[in-house]
Design a protein around this nucleic acid. Structure first.
Lengths: 343, 343
DNA sequence: CGAGTATACTAAATTTATTAAGTAAATAAG
DNA sequence: CTTATTTACTTAATAAATTTAGTATACTCG
């Protein structure tokens, strides 16, 4: 055998004068051959420098890859930058690591899951991918799919009870039927526009946690006896500084000014607090603010934020476990209210 | 064709009454068949729901996977937590995304690169993997390898000129031959022990950036006329809070107390500043501190940190570009001194 | 001792695709 | 009109494995 050539199962079998099947069995099905023969073969392979069956060929044949694609909501940058998202990745990674499954990062701005679909055992999907075509592709794929903070048909998924959590935090914020409420909601519309939403009857539901949270808010608003038509509902296109600031400014400048600001994420709420501080208005005396997520920064803001805390790492762990265990059901993870000074 | 069956190139070819080769060519080598026939075939495939050749089989045959494994120095957690590391991932990811190459995260505490080796076009290695067996495996692999902040034989690599940078920052800190110097170095020994290193002649060099930086420090120390034997050299096992704090405490409690603290990372330096503040000693009057890396937090510390800044994201970009361009050379990226108030 | 069964192995089919080599027909050149 | 070239395709080998079905040998049991 020339130095340069890499061994294959076939060439090894030929060299050792046994069948392909026997070499394959020596590595993968020990019960199919005698212990003695198996030892001989493994020893020879080691000596010749054959490390074992090629994983790509093995996977093609078996249809098992030991790789799962983590479909990110946005570019990889978002995933390592956003505190909530990065915790989720950690959770997923820790479980996969234990199960010797590899993790492939798949950007939510990619065009097509086809490029990886044939290489992975399935997808773990965190939030709604920015490229919404991916959703349809994920819906159609035959591969296993687990979603988190986001639903695709009736595929396995994990999240908190967003509706109840949203209702709970909104109830804390709303204290009188006369309150002037502003809701800063994520991706309520299918547009980048930072604008007031008037018709809430058929909001864009592609990003279902936003939808669920909104339903919870609405419930709290109705139960408090506030007219929904008096509520200023604002669209925040993406959960980042730029869009959050635009929406916050728009909401704060609207007349009559709201005295209750319900934010669909802590990021939005923290920016709201900053802007309100800058305007010299006092929180919570003049305006009450609530957030959602419970990120660490919310504990350090001035004033500290009243929000819903959810354990994002645990969500990642649960999502990966659902995947590994081939579960098909939906799992709710716990949440709790964090009582800050902003409300 | 029953509903449940997935099409393959073969079954499609049979159905359309053409050869496998023709279908393959329709998708992958348009010049090999007439435009008319090609259109017919592609249209039929679309209609039948065949999305194109299976990528796994394609890759097996071609030996090209469009996946690169990013070998992390530690668990995935480290990569999303550490500010320097996460910037590097961003850089790598952005370039790979542009080139439609997928990114597989490979934990540095994994046992064996074999599990992914047959699935990827190669490895981008960021820092020395914690499981040092991986280094030997990466040395032996036939796959393409690019390293960053770390060298394997003469494989392609990217980093700053650590030796000169370290020498430069150390020179800033050392101002007299009578200075009492403490060096807090990363992974100088092959042990978890936080201890003083007396014999610097054969330090563990598996983590080569630490080694290079140490050589730079030594050069500066010698040029300043300070006896190396008078310098307290301390081993920081890993760049995290736990080990950094242990080493900082040990160094600050040693007699005679050092008035120059040279830290091999900003993380260590920031902890040193905190401890020094807590002891009521003033920086830089009584003790001068310098770091390495130039993370954002170094600009916000009290006092601000004097350190070496390196662009970690650019390092990731360069590493990925070296990989994509099949380069084999080593590339240095620029660095610069950040003048803070700590020195 | 003969029938039935377990063991240890092999041959060949299978997984899904690419590609070099070969062939027939159509076109171009002389 | 013959020969050379190009075009358009097919056949069969190849990539690197797993696995079912089949065969020969050895063993067990009545």
């Amino acid at each position: 055998m020339p130095e340069n050539k890499t061994w294959t199962l076939k060439s090894i079998a030929k060299m050792l004068g046994v069948s392909n099947a026997t070499v394959s069995n020596a590595f993968s099905r020990p019960d199919q051959l005698s212990a003695k023969r198996r030892q001989e073969i493994l020893a020879s392979c080691k000596e010749l420098g054959y490390a074992g069956p090629n994983k790509a060929a093995q996977s093609l044949r078996k249809g098992l890859f030991n790789i799962v694609a983590l479909v990110l909501p946005d570019s990889v940058e978002y995933m390592v930058t956003d505190p909530v998202a990065s915790k989720f990745v950690q959770g997923v990674a820790s479980v996969l690591e234990k199960n010797k499954v590899n993790l492939l990062l798949f950007s939510g701005i990619s065009e097509n899951i086809n490029s990886v679909s044939d290489f992975v055992d399935g997808f773990i999907c965190y939030g709604s991918p920015r490229n919404t075509e991916l959703i349809e592709q994920l819906r159609l794929t035959r591969k296993k799919v687990v979603t988190a903070d986001f639903d695709i048909d009736r595929k396995a998924s994990v999240s908190i009870d967003n509706e109840n959590a949203a209702c709970e935090i909104a109830k804390l914020a709303i204290q009188s039927p006369d309150d002037k409420i502003a809701v800063l909601g994520l991706r309520l519309l299918d547009t980048e526009l930072t604008c007031r939403v008037y018709d809430t009857s058929n909001l864009d539901i592609d990003c279902s946690i936003a939808h669920q949270r909104f339903i919870g808010y609405k419930k709290a608003i109705e139960q408090a006896g506030v007219q929904l038509s008096s509520v200023g509902i604002w669209n925040v296109h993406e959960n980042n500084h730029h869009f959050a600031l635009m929406a916050v400014k728009a909401a704060l400048n609207a007349k009559p000014r709201a005295n209750v600001i319900i934010c669909m994420s802590d990021l939005i709420a923290l920016i709201a607090l900053q802007e309100i501080n800058a305007m010299g208005i006092s929180v919570p005396q003049d305006i009450r603010v609530v957030g959602f997520d419970g990120i660490d920064e919310a504990l350090r803001s001035t004033p500290t934020l009243t929000t819903i805390h959810q354990n994002s790492e645990e969500k990642g762990i649960k999502a990966a476990e659902l995947f590994i265990n081939k579960a098909t059901h939906t799992e709710k993870i716990p949440y709790h209210v964090v009582y800050g000074k902003s409300c």
